[in-house]
Nucleic acid binder design. Structure first.
Lengths: 175, 175
DNA sequence: AACCGCTATATCGGACCGATATAACGGGTG
DNA sequence: CACCCGTTATATCGGTCCGATATAGCGGTT
């Protein structure tokens, strides 16, 4: 998962570990740890998906290899059915431009289905336990449902915009 | 973290592992794994915070010990300043009734501050990178901000309701 | 009786987290 | 200039948590 994120970021240009971490934070990984990032870099280096070169000063610049690009493409498309994991979902969305356009909508729809199932289950458990849980737990569960519903609405936006953008596919955009 | 959740649930009565997992799902831990639950149970058993007795059939019923209750209270209150971790925050909220009322509002306010900081940072990074990121990443970041803002609004509700409930503290509620 | 899906416990390797250590760099202060 | 301090930067360690997988009893169906 982190591997995919790192490879995706390095596709845009060489970077060192610290910078990589900050970019991950920008993407919404607020709590990503150096204890994850540096091991990931060594992992990817060992697999020869990235190359670490001594950059300016004490920094180590990492750049993606041809194998790395191929591997990135592979895990991006292959796991596009894995839609349960929120982090993995977000990483794939962040690198949507590298994903086959035909897969994109299917991917978003799958995610929507997962959320709908969760919402239904949560609503059920809210009804089932209504009089047994305290107001804090109740509020927690209700807020969970509301968040998931907001996510579904957002997915609907994304799907709609994806469909409209599809039509004028031949006119190349900047992104 | 999982330890706190397990102890908190077992405070309400004995349960077996499978049931425990389902209740965690109800609390919003959609992806909690058996590979986390069963090791947690053995961990807590070793520490004598819980006792496992052979229940009906092949089930193992676990019940909390006096030490366990004490430990639960400890980690619930002690870590109430640790408010960065979303899961830990939600677990504490789910067991708010066991938390010292004076600590509760402070706890919620701390969480609000964390979210506000994140929102500010995310807004900044949105402005900073506005023309460099594609529409998918942009939408991802925007949605992140919107979610966090919704969380803040929810926290405000919780704080308000906590304050009003505080006044009539002597009249005992069911919960 | 055979089969199937659900309940239930368990283990394993690996990913990820949180804390911590180390140190070089850049800027301001005396 | 020398000193200090906050930021940048890399690294490691123990422990938690995840995802996959194995095993098996249990209840209902055909």
């Amino acid at each position: 998962m982190l591997d995919m994120a790192v490879l995706g970021l390095l596709r845009e240009g060489p970077m060192h570990g610290y910078e990589l971490k900050q970019r991950l934070v920008d993407l919404g990984f607020w709590r990503i740890s150096f204890g994850s990032v540096y091991p990931a870099l060594r992992r990817l280096e060992r697999a020869e998906f990235i190359e670490g070169t001594p950059g300016s000063g004490r920094r180590k610049e990492y750049r993606i290899t041809a194998d790395g690009k191929e591997h990135f493409q592979q895990i991006l498309e292959d796991g596009a059915s894995e839609v349960e994991n929120t982090s993995a979902f977000r990483v794939r969305l962040a690198f949507f431009r590298y994903m086959n356009p035909e897969t994109r909508i299917e991917f978003l729809e799958r995610r929507k289905t997962v959320l709908r199932v969760r919402i239904a289950a949560a609503r059920n458990s809210l009804r089932r336990t209504a009089d047994r849980v305290d107001r804090y737990t109740h509020s927690l569960m209700e807020h969970g449902v509301r968040s998931a519903e907001a996510d579904v609405a957002w997915l609907d936006e994304l799907i709609a915009s994806e469909r409209t953008h599809d039509e004028g596919l031949d006119a190349p955009e900047k992104f």
